[in-house]
Design a protein around this nucleic acid. Structure first.
Lengths: 201, 201
DNA sequence: GCAATCTTGGAACGGTCGTTCCGAGATCCG
DNA sequence: CGGATCTCGGAACGACCGTTCCAAGATTGC
């Protein structure tokens, strides 16, 4: 009986992700989304609800399509430190060149845009993302340990936290035009001495 | 002949700093500034110009009153690694407790809020801030080296960059409620092994 | 083809945005 | 005290905000 949707909701959501990612939620109007997706206000509201719902859906989609695949790769990759090195190399490349150059990371940006009295669901999502990142790094460091790339008594938790914060720093500074080679040097130097970091904890 | 200002522009600017710092520029309306400062729209525009000028002035004032004193202390403090440790301890304390708890760093937030087509002066300010931070860290590491806390052949540049990115990460995560003790542990572990990092570069 | 049901187009809502303008008030110089 | 000059209070501007509403269009089951 009913009519059917005349557009692909996921494609529209991807467009919204790009807008929110590049400009932030506060600087992106519904009109921007309407213009970019080409579909109508009514369809937007009927499909995604209000702006906050749309932003939350965009955040979730970003995590699923951009963050988690990289985390999954890092978790599965059993090579240890080389896996971590590849993770950061890919991160820097995505942040500084290609379609998303200088956009930073949508989740990192959301950290800075977050306010005390906005949707607590956003905060939960940010924490979930952080835990996933920590978990993936920890898994990689565990592989490194079992392969003798790190001391047996290394405390991996602090090392994982350091790398996570370092990733946030890379995301943040890349948005303001940081030199990718300087970022790469810093990351490489850090990884080269990770054993000492982990042992010192 | 002329009338005189009936308010203290710097006090008003401090109020604006707090608003932009906590809520971000995009989410802060001129009306918010008017209400918080108690002065009139006309006085605001006559004194600071439009919103973008006000935001820029607020950024500059934040750097002068919040960032640079800490950078200066770090630069002057000749103790080496303990100076760096104190710098981070103070950073974590400010970010997680007291009046500005969970506000993050205004400059860090500005990194994430920045857009390609906004005032290039903002970008220059962010880069200047980054260079100041790098310089202060480098000076402290130089002291550490001269005191034998770091190897003589240590490459300090990468270590300073790592610490700067780590500081950004602390600022960012603190805004979303990161555990201060976990942050402290991570920073302490990193500093404890800084010698290895610097030598590996 | 008819009726039911959802989607779509587009106007319209009240509110807030950043900004401007002008009359009224306050202040200092001569 | 007089007059010049700036500040201050507050209304007003057009534009845009997120959101709602309704009629028109499209589709499916009978």
């Amino acid at each position: 009986m009913p009519d059917i949707k005349h557009f692909d909701p996921q494609a529209a959501l991807d467009t919204a992700v790009r807008l929110f990612w590049r400009q932030g939620a506060a600087s992106t109007g519904i009109q921007d989304v309407v213009t970019a997706t080409g579909l109508n206000r009514s369809s937007l509201y009927a499909t995604f609800g209000g702006k906050q719902d749309l932003y939350l859906a965009a955040l979730r989609r970003y995590v699923r399509t951009h963050s988690e695949p990289a985390f999954e790769r890092l978790t599965q990759d059993g090579r240890g430190l080389p896996a971590v090195a590849d993770f950061f190399a890919g991160l820097i490349e995505v942040r500084c060149s290609g379609e998303y150059a200088r956009w930073g990371c949508m989740i990192t940006n959301a950290h800075a845009a977050r306010t005390e009295n906005d949707d607590p669901e956003v905060l939960r999502l940010l924490d979930g993302h952080h835990q996933h990142l920590l978990g993936a790094l920890h898994a990689a460091l565990l592989s490194a340990q079992s392969r003798g790339q790190l001391p047996r008594d290394a405390e991996l938790q602090c090392a994982a936290e350091l790398l996570a914060l370092l990733a946030y720093g890379v995301n943040l500074r890349s948005r303001s035009g940081a030199d990718p080679e300087a970022l790469y040097r810093t990351v490489t130097a850090t990884l080269a001495s990770l054993g000492a970091i982990a042992a010192a904890s």
